[in-house]
């Protein structure tokens, strides 16, 4: 069982995958936690179980006092209030940038938060893109829109699945800085998957390295035990 902890996110899940059993127990707070490790080590699956898009076989997921999953609970993804951004951004191509960002908000929320939303557009530098369609955006622009869309409903937790891997290496540093800035300003807990080791150590306050579904290494900012010398 997870203990009710209002400051932490506790993810303790078991799930039988094709090649191995995922068995993970991690805990983090209002910080950027990184899941890293080789391809096929279960990172994305773990993220998807937290979002409610996949079901663990057993375990519990507790996000700051709210039980997402345990022996008797299994909230559906729409009840979890998490922001989820995947690699391709997955913007809705038939909606403008503005409508994409507002997708997760009902009419009242759009009205009540209009000022705050203006700030969000400004902060992510997508204000001038509002009327454009996703097909006309660059990779970096699309990913900023996807981030804004995930943040607009004010999620409890932000889940990022390799959000920068599909874009130019030249725009990545700017996006990483932006993410870090927003995370610190809002103090929103972030769980991010990346197979890029440099990125993991630049962004992460806490780094979990997965290997065949188990946490092989857990590092904390300032207490880095070792920088891995071998890259995957």
């Amino acid at each position: 069982m997870c203990r009710a902890d209002y400051t932490m996110i506790e993810i303790k899940v078991k799930k039988q995958l094709k090649a191995f059993t995922m068995d993970v127990n991690i805990k983090f707070g209002r910080e950027i936690a990184i899941l890293t490790g080789p391809n096929g080590s279960g990172k994305s699956t773990l993220l998807r179980t937290v979002a409610g898009l996949e079901r663990p076989d057993a375990g519990c997921i507790n996000v700051m006092g709210e039980i997402f999953f345990d022996a008797s609970t299994d909230l559906s993804p729409d009840q979890r209030r998490v922001g989820y951004v995947c690699q391709e951004g997955a913007l809705f191509p038939w909606l403008t940038v503005e409508k994409n960002v507002l997708f997760g908000l009902d009419r009242n929320a759009r009205k009540d938060r209009s000022e705050w939303l203006d700030g969000l557009f400004e902060e992510l530098e997508i204000k001038d893109l509002k009327r454009r369609y996703p097909g006309s955006l660059s990779g970096g622009e699309a990913q900023r829109v996807a981030l804004a869309r995930a943040l607009a409903p004010r999620p409890r937790l932000l889940l990022l699945d390799e959000p920068f891997s599909a874009m130019d290496t030249a725009v990545r540093p700017r996006l990483r800085a932006l993410l870090k800035e927003m995370q610190q300003e809002w103090e929103i807990p972030v769980l991010m998957v990346t197979h890029d080791h440099a990125e993991a150590y630049i962004l992460g306050d806490r780094i979990f390295e997965l290997k065949e579904g188990k946490v092989a290494l857990c590092n904390e900012r300032g207490k880095v035990i070792r920088m891995p010398l071998v890259s995957y």
């Binding site: 559906s76 209030r81 997955a90 997708f103 995930a150």
Partner: peptide, 21 residues
């Protein structure tokens, strides 16, 4: 694209809303 469906679900759409939207 199943990612669009996943994204809509995490943005608060139940299955019926996901179908329509």
């Amino acid at each position: 694209n199943p990612r669009l469906v996943d994204t809509a679900r995490t943005l608060g759409c139940n299955r019926w809303q996901t179908f329509w939207r």
